[in-house]
Write a protein that binds this DNA or RNA. Structure first.
Length: 448
RNA sequence: GUGGAUAUAGCGUAGUUGGUUAACGCGUCAGAUUGUGGUUCUGAAGACCGUCGGUUCGAGUCCGACUAUCCACCCCA
């Protein structure tokens, strides 16, 4: 026996029972996004490395230590996408979509890759639902995408999440704010933890969400971004808060929400779940008015968010949310013997051609195991076909929920599947009233 | 990159102060008078107890290393 190959660290296999949950989430998410007028689009899983260096930021953790970069045969290097936004912007620019009028509203479902140490809610391959809106500078746009995210969570039945918002201003007010932070923290420099001393130089905003108790204490009275917003940024933020209040969307202003990707401006927000451990951010996003021009386009206001699907599903599992029930076969056909198997296969085919799910035996099992199997997979009806049935042309259609058996004529039964009447039976089961009707119908000579 | 925890059949677990054929539940398969499921009963298959080394007359049980996984820091979805 040779060694088994195992899946790469930080990846997950999605077995059928798990995949069914994903479908619930994906369908809901698509539906809501489309209700808001967003169109789905897709981009390659890998892009030129430079795309992420320029958009996400060359000092960000994502770019400096988490990218999966490969060099291909030529001289270019490519990177597995660590997030969705950059590729979307690139694709819209490359295809001239930014010239087709605004607003442009797109959404996507895609796997992303980051070389991190796996942990609860943090994987190397993870999946994002995300969306981007281009050309809308108004705070109503900010409000709309936050409302959209909120609607998605609500539609999924997720309750234990809180919305945190903040404004980090435009580049001008942010510069002023950074200076103010440095001024505030400078006297305490020696007391700060090592990483925070480093942060003081590079990115003082990061000081605010340090978990060290000492740094926390010092940061308690630090100036907040909101205090340093220019008039325009302040007005934008105030209006956003008003709109959210009108919508009835509960939020808290959280100066600690800062975002690790460099492209954000003004509005930033996170939805944080209480149910899934330390990595509680289930959805994060905001405005990035500078990104499009950074990637070579015109100056186009833009905003969006990413939602971590693994974390969404974890939250749902941990809080007892409902998932869509998996599809079960409408009919299981249990053949006995070789001749019957042929007949069963034909019958199954006829059923499927009429839009219903049918299964039959493929491994030569006896009647009993077949019944067990039919029960296990949740078949709604079972019909047994053996020598007797082949001879007489009649069989019994068994309702697996009630145990009732209804005689049917095989040939007519197959032909009858296209009728609206049978549709009714399969959709709603066999009521007493229609059992009688069905027997008549099916035994009838000229059923079409 | 830094810490902490765990590692027994497909899955979930038990294995007492180290002592002969490693237990249980779920699942799988097969039976309970031979053509019918879900309950019950019976039986079967399935584990070199993560890997390597050490202590010992003897180790799943103690020690060490390695590996993997999980959790937390960091960062983020």
């Amino acid at each position: 026996m040779s060694m088994q190959i195992k899946r790469p660290k930080g990846t997950q296999d999605m077995l059928p029972s798990q995949a069914a949950k994903w479908r619930t989430v994906e369908e809901t998410v698509r539906q809501v996004a489309e209700q808001f007028g967003f169109k789905e689009m897709r981009t390659p899983v890998f892009e030129e490395t430079g795309l992420y260096v320029r958009s996400v930021g060359d000092t960000s953790d994502v770019v400096t230590k988490e990218m999966y970069t490969v060099s291909s045969k030529g001289s270019d290097t490519f990177t597995l996408r660590p997030e969705g936004t950059a590729g979307i912007v690139r694709a819209l620019l490359e295809n001239g979509v930014m010239n087709e009028g605004f607003p442009q509203k797109v959404y996507y479902l895609m796997p992303c890759y980051r070389h991190e140490k796996p942990q609860a809610g943090r994987l190397r391959e993870f999946h994002q639902f995300g969306l981007e809106m281009f050309g809308a500078a108004s705070p109503y746009a900010d409000a709309e995408i936050i409302l959209l995210a909120s609607t998605v969570l609500e539609s999924l039945g997720i309750e234990n999440v809180s919305l945190h918002i903040n404004s980090i201003g435009c580049p001008e007010c942010r510069a002023k704010y950074r200076d103010a932070l440095r001024e505030y923290f400078a006297p305490h420099e020696s007391e700060l933890c090592e990483t925070c001393q480093e942060r003081l130089k590079k990115n003082p905003m990061r000081l605010l969400d340090c978990k060290s108790p000492i740094c926390k204490e010092i940061a308690k009275n630090a100036p907040t971004t909101v205090d340093f917003l220019c008039d325009d940024c302040r007005a934008h933020f105030d209006t956003l808060k008003d709109i959210l209040t009108d919508f009835g969307v509960a939020f808290t202003v959280d100066p600690k929400i800062v975002r690790g990707l460099d492209y954000y401006t003004r509005t930033v927000f996170e939805f944080i779940s209480e149910d899934i451990g330390a990595q509680g951010t289930v959805c994060g996003g905001g405005r990035y008015d500078g990104l499009v021009s950074e990637l070579g386009g015109q100056a186009v206001p833009a905003l969006g968010f990413g939602m971590g699907l693994e974390r969404i599903i974890m939250t749902m599992e941990n809080s007892g949310c409902e998932f869509e029930a998996p599809k079960t076969p409408d009919l299981y056909i249990a053949p006995m013997g070789e001749k019957a198997q042929r007949k069963a296969a034909l019958l199954a085919d006829a059923v499927r051609r009429n839009g219903y799910a049918a299964e039959t035996d493929l491994i030569g099992r006896g009647i009993k195991p077949q019944m067990r199997y039919a029960d296990k997979v949740g078949a709604k009806f079972v019909v047994v076909i053996g020598d007797n049935e082949l001879e007489s042309g009649e069989a019994k259609l068994k309702n697996m929920r009630t145990g009732d058996e209804t005689p049917v004529v095989l040939e007519n039964f197959m032909a009858a599947f296209s009728s609206a009447f049978i549709n009714e039976v399969f959709e709603n089961g066999l009521g007493d009233d229609i059992v009688g009707a069905m027997t008549d119908e099916i035994s009838g000579e000229d059923k079409e």
